[in-house]
Design a protein around this nucleic acid. Structure first.
Length: 152
DNA sequence: GCCAACGTTGGC
DNA sequence: GCCAACGTTGGC
């Protein structure tokens, strides 16, 4: 089992959206970066646990936890010309992008803020605090997972 | 809205 | 395959 951190802009989809419909699978689509896609396609497995991280917003940080319930499949939004994620170069017989499905596990009682993560020496190696790190899907070690959740 | 740090594109 | 120009991300 692996651990991950997924970034999302809460104005698009936030932990509260998931909490409101906790039994509805969360379709994680729209990843349009090859390195992040490769993690999704080759690494993310059913049963993996995921930190939901809110970015590009007022309250930045880890907001909750989800679990993978479906591994990588062709991201439907790449074929949808009305979608902001539409990719005219993607072909049905050779999809470029993949999606996974998640299940809501919990919203953390309090956000683990980026400030707090940065101020923890144990989190120095966490990809999300590395300079220039912009991946929306990043691996997290079990130790980082435990240490991070211990910050709350 | 600024800007650093990427990633992508396309001409050559 | 190089690299300049352009686009995007995301914290501040």
């Amino acid at each position: 089992m692996n651990y991950w951190l997924f970034k999302t802009e809460p104005s698009e989809c936030s932990i509260d959206d998931f909490a409101r419909a906790p039994t509805t699978p969360i379709v994680w689509e729209g990843v349009r970066n090859y390195q992040a896609r490769n993690f999704l396609r080759d690494g993310v497995q059913v049963g993996d646990h995921v930190l939901i991280y809110h970015s590009s917003c007022k309250d930045i940080g880890v907001a909750g936890i989800a679990e993978v319930v479906r591994s990588a499949y062709a991201d439907p939004s790449q074929f949808d010309c009305r979608s902001i994620y539409y990719d005219p170069k993607a072909k049905a017989e050779q999809p470029r992008w993949v999606a996974v499905d998640l299940r809501f596990v919990q919203k953390l009682p309090r956000l683990i803020t980026l400030d707090k993560i940065k101020s923890s020496a144990k989190m120095a190696e966490l990809p999300v605090v590395q300079k220039g790190s912009r991946l929306s899907v990043m691996p997290v070690t079990i130790q980082q997972w435990r240490d991070l959740l211990a910050l709350q």
